[in-house]
Design a protein around this nucleic acid. Sequence first.
DNA 1: CCGTCATGGAATCAATGATACGACCACCCG
DNA 2: CGGGTGGTCGTATCATTGATTCCATGACGG
Lengths: 236, 236
Amino acid sequence: MTDTEALRAAMIEAAERQLAESADHDIATRAVCEAVGVTQPVLYRLFGDKRGLLDAVADHGYERYAALKAAEEQTDDPVADLRAGWDNHMRFARDNPALYQLMFTPRPWSHSTARDRVFDLLVAALMRCAATGALTLEPRTAARLILSANIGLALNHIADPALFGDPTLSHRMRDTVFARVLTETTAREEADPLHAAALRLRAQLELAGTDALEPVETALLLHWLERITRPDGTAG
Amino acid sequence: MTDTEALRAAMIEAAERQLAESADHDIATRAVCEAVGVTQPVLYRLFGDKRGLLDAVADHGYERYAALKAAEEQTDDPVADLRAGWDNHMRFARDNPALYQLMFTPRPWSHSTARDRVFDLLVAALMRCAATGALTLEPRTAARLILSANIGLALNHIADPALFGDPTLSHRMRDTVFARVLTETTAREEADPLHAAALRLRAQLELAGTDALEPVETALLLHWLERITRPDGTAG
DNA sequence: CCGTCATGGAATCAATGATACGACCACCCG
DNA sequence: CGGGTGGTCGTATCATTGATTCCATGACGG
């Protein structure tokens, strides 16, 4: 089995390389097969069809994306990590435009989980922020906002570097969205302390759980907390 | 000439229809030709190649986009128009996902001007806002922020309606970006009245020009105003 | 040692982007 | 009026590429 595993990996790598070098952001299954010294039926047995191969490439792209994030974040300041995460995202897009487009552009029938997993990664980072009371929205709602802005800017950067290549634009967008999602330490907590406290407790619970309550009780508690914090958006 | 014009239009329309109905967001040149009763060489004479056809479809999509905007905006409140413009953009994306993706997704070698013209449309709407002193940034800088967020959210909506289909999400994003770009009437003008006044004058000049000064003088004046308002971003 | 099954390859099919070349037609010039 | 000329279109065809069929080969178990 390790044999086919290695073959799979080799084909994905070849496909990713050819995708990066292709002028039209597309690949030919023949070329990928020739690059690794096999014939086409092998590819179709391993990946089903061309879309399956591209899905695998996208998922592999997520692995590199996640590795990049793991390497450069995770300090003791979750908000700083969040900002670094935005910049890392932009850098990843700039360095791998074709792969980035494959991962984040709508592709009908795609079974790739790259986008969802990136979303989950962002939610996790946001929950660490929420645990310190730095979040004004539900993590999943905040993640939707941040990720959309991030992807939109990155795709525009790829499509038209002349108009959207300005690095200060990225920081301006980042600060704009973060200003909506984060609270300057205490300002918003003063305004609605109940809401803030509920968000904080909820984040802590979802992050670490508790042994003081039975699971059923915890679930109910979370439900109540959700109702308290509901006004800020739909359930995630 | 009207003959080939009509043929061109018919082919573009057929291509757009087939694109909307296609499951994979792609079309076959053969099918387009058969739909209008001509053979492939005519397509290649009219559009050069498939990319040329798609460029024409994208540009035609812009026409419909612009018509939609012209129909529903242009009240006496430019800020309200701006908000309506955001919602129209989202609606256009939702109603024409394949076309939208063709227009706003990075396409190597594309000669379509759809994105740039949408950008210009947004800049024009923003200059009307700037003329009333409602803008805190250069129109082109603000346009980059708004358009990126708008496109990012729309593409995510297309790619994953379950996660990004919530309409309140669109309004939340809209208000977030607009809050950064717009000023609540007078709040910011109080803080830095010189900056605000310069922005306002500059917008008026770029919008209507003036007969009171020679062109050279106007150009120099604009240059000075740009220097005064520089701190908020790069030149557009 | 032989049968069975999985694995890979040669050959091929089908769809599709793109083109060479000849027929046709309108228009202009003599 | 007739022939040439330019352009427009269609037939037939090529080349690329996604996808499949079918056979050979080799490993493993009985």
